[in-house]
């Protein structure tokens, strides 16, 4: 096939990384070098110790050859990330504003430019991991607001969107079809069997997709009144959304149900 099946619903993390590598970053060249014309831009002449902004993929090549130092962006500093982490916890219903490619770029830099960081790298790594987990939990919780009309998810970065994409698209599309068929059903005085069959198939898929997902919840936060066991928290949220999808009227025990990240007016 011209496009492998796993590429049809979403992008792979590698492809997201590819997109992130196009973002500009500041470097500090260690040697002077002549520029050249590239397909996407002109590579300027580099002068030793004069800051220049170039795409990340290029910065990484130069870095590997020891030709430059990368200027670590402000948002990858310990104090900034700590601030964001506190924001995340204080606003349980909102994602704090982080760069569009924050996870991907931080991974690229932590892999290839460790020596350019001013702060201890292990602390940055663990803070990023914490931030990621808090946000992942919020994103999962938001899944139960899924409906067939629309969903708003401000503040998520591209790779975080990419993670929920296959699930969200499938559920929304299926809910839409269910609603359409129930309309037909009302008109014709009987339900559409094939569509209801489709529903069970879908919930099956949902299980499959998330069967391997385990939240390693080392983050010490409280999710409102819901004090479900830590390790199972992510899954219980999922189950919430799962039952919702199936149309069961489950008791909503989450005090944050007026969650405004995913709101439906």
């Amino acid at each position: 096939m011209s496009l492998p099946k796993q590429l049809r619903d979403t992008f792979t993390p590698k492809e997201i990384s590819f997109l992130a590598e196009q973002e500009p970053i500041m470097i500090l060249p260690r040697y002077s070098m002549h520029g050249t014309t590239l397909i996407s831009a002109k590579l300027p002449n580099l002068r030793a110790l004069h800051r220049e902004s170039i795409p990340i993929w290029l910065a990484l090549i130069l870095k590997r050859q020891d030709k430059c130092n990368i200027v670590i962006p402000d948002w990858l500093q310990l104090s900034y990330l700590q601030q964001k982490y506190e924001d995340e916890i204080q606003n349980p219903n909102k994602f704090s504003k982080l760069p569009w490619h924050w996870i991907t770029i931080s991974k690229l830099l932590l892999d290839s430019a460790v020596d350019d960081f001013m702060d201890p790298v292990y602390e940055i790594r663990s803070l990023i991991q914490d931030l990621r987990e808090v946000r992942l939990l919020k994103a999962r919780r938001g899944l139960k607001e899924l409906n067939e009309v629309y969903l708003q998810l401000d503040g998520l970065s591209l790779i975080e969107i990419n993670e929920v994409r296959p699930f969200v698209l499938k559920v929304m599309n299926q809910l839409r079809k269910l609603k359409e068929s129930s309309k037909i059903g009302e008109q014709e005085m009987y339900g559409d069997d094939t569509e209801i069959g489709g529903d069970t198939v879908m919930s099956q898929d949902v299980d499959d997709d998330y069967a391997g997902v385990q939240i390693n919840d080392s983050v010490g936060i409280n999710h409102g009144s819901n004090s479900a066991g830590r390790s199972g928290a992510g899954n219980s949220y999922l189950n919430d959304s799962h039952t919702r999808v199936q149309g069961d009227s489950m008791e909503d025990d989450d005090s944050d149900s007026d969650d405004d990240i995913y709101r439906k007016d």
Binding site: V149, Y150, Q152, D154, V168, D265
Partner: peptide, 11 residues
């Protein structure tokens, strides 16, 4: 559905 600038939606 009202759309906000910079907002991210699925529809």
């Amino acid at each position: 559905v009202e759309l906000e600038k910079e907002g991210i939606y699925v529809m």
